[in-house]
């Protein structure tokens, strides 16, 4: 990513007076100085910009207020009440309960289980997905000369596929008796487990499935990062006598660091909220072994415990914000 801005500037031909130094101009500093079209001009021009700016922003802001910000605030308010589905017809029955919901979730055994499952899902899933995506990207970038597009489309196929369709086929693959996976294992003389109905293998199965499904996305992201690394660096390292592995270790990896962090955080944020996999594959079972925090929130909504569910959702929100903040700290510390 280090040279992504340079890559981008080339085709548009525009060197702009903006904050070219920062890698993520928008993220590190909202509203970068000097990136607007206007040189200080007549007052009429600025007023025109003001009117046009708000005019262009208005439709989005309307949707944003009604369908995004509104619900975020409503959810926050709900988390401090005992709102239940039965109260919807009789709003007067809803009482503020202060932080009771937040106190309750601290002692919730099932939530603790869901949090542990989610942590495992992130801790196992993110590195696995990243290693697979990086390996595929490096192989496509440097290892082969033909069929690149063919491989890229194939590796990306699981990413664009509906989770429901993925679930249909994976449930077949993982069938204990007639599934393809256990059939192949049997040929090797291994007695495969009942993957999705065994508490020991259900969660790892979902981790593998998620990595299978998402590695294609990281492959594309990493590929873009790899192609932005100037070839001269590799040539210089090769002249200095570095082997392929040393070049990967000391040239590719350090320059790819921002891209890796970006990919890791995007994947981590997604995995922190993992919901669809257990929803379509296991229903959270067996014995809550694949119950995730997001799935538990959904269950609480289903039980009608709106206030409590909103409180858990906010805790998940804080976890996502924390992960993102950690990422920016990491990026700033070294770039």
């Amino acid at each position: 990513m280090a040279s992504a801005p340079a890559r981008r500037a080339a085709p548009t031909g525009g060197a702009r007076p903006g904050p070219r130094g920062s890698r993520w101009p928008g993220l590190t500093r909202p509203g970068p100085r000097g990136s607007t079209g206007g040189r200080p001009g007549r007052r009429g021009v600025t007023r025109r910009q003001r009117v046009a700016g708000w005019g262009l922003a208005l439709p989005f802001l309307l949707i944003f207020t009604v369908f995004m910000a509104g619900p975020v605030l409503a959810s926050a308010a709900m988390s401090f009440t005992d709102l239940r589905s039965a109260d919807l017809r009789n709003p007067l029955a809803v009482d503020p309960v202060g932080v009771d919901n937040y106190v309750r979730l601290l002692g919730d055994e099932t939530l603790r289980r869901a949090a542990a499952n989610t942590a495992w899902f992130v801790l196992l899933g993110v590195p696995l997905t990243m290693v697979l995506g990086l390996a595929a990207a490096v192989a496509l970038d440097a290892g082969i000369s033909r069929f690149r597009r063919f491989f890229r489309v194939g590796y990306y196929l699981p990413v664009v596929t509906s989770i429901v369709a993925v679930a249909v086929v994976w449930r077949f693959l993982l069938e204990p008796d007639s599934g393809l996976v256990n059939t192949l294992l049997a040929r090797l003389g291994v007695d495969g487990p009942a993957w999705l109905s065994d508490t020991r293998t259900a969660l790892p199965s979902l981790v593998v499935m998620a990595a299978w499904r998402n590695m294609g996305f990281l492959m594309v992201v990493f590929l873009a990062g790899l192609q932005a690394i100037p070839g001269e660096l590799h040539e210089a390292a090769a002249i200095d006598g570095c082997g392929a592995w040393a070049r990967f270790r000391h040239v590719t990896l350090p320059l790819l660091r921002p891209t890796l962090l970006f990919g890791g955080v995007v994947t981590g944020i997604g995995y922190l909220q993992f919901f669809e996999e257990p929803f379509v594959m296991t229903g959270g079972g067996p014995l809550d072994s694949t119950l995730s925090v997001a799935f538990y929130i959904y269950q609480q909504f289903g039980f009608g415990n709106y206030g409590y569910a909103a409180a858990i959702a906010y805790v998940l929100f804080v976890a996502v914000v924390g992960l993102t903040a950690a990422q920016f700290r990491l990026m700033r510390s070294k770039t």
Binding site: F67, P71, I269
Partner: peptide, 18 residues
Amino acid sequence: LGMLMVPGMVTFVPLFML
């Protein structure tokens, strides 16, 4: 940018109620 980080589950029920 802030909205980018909001998990879908936070808005799910208020959105449905709305």
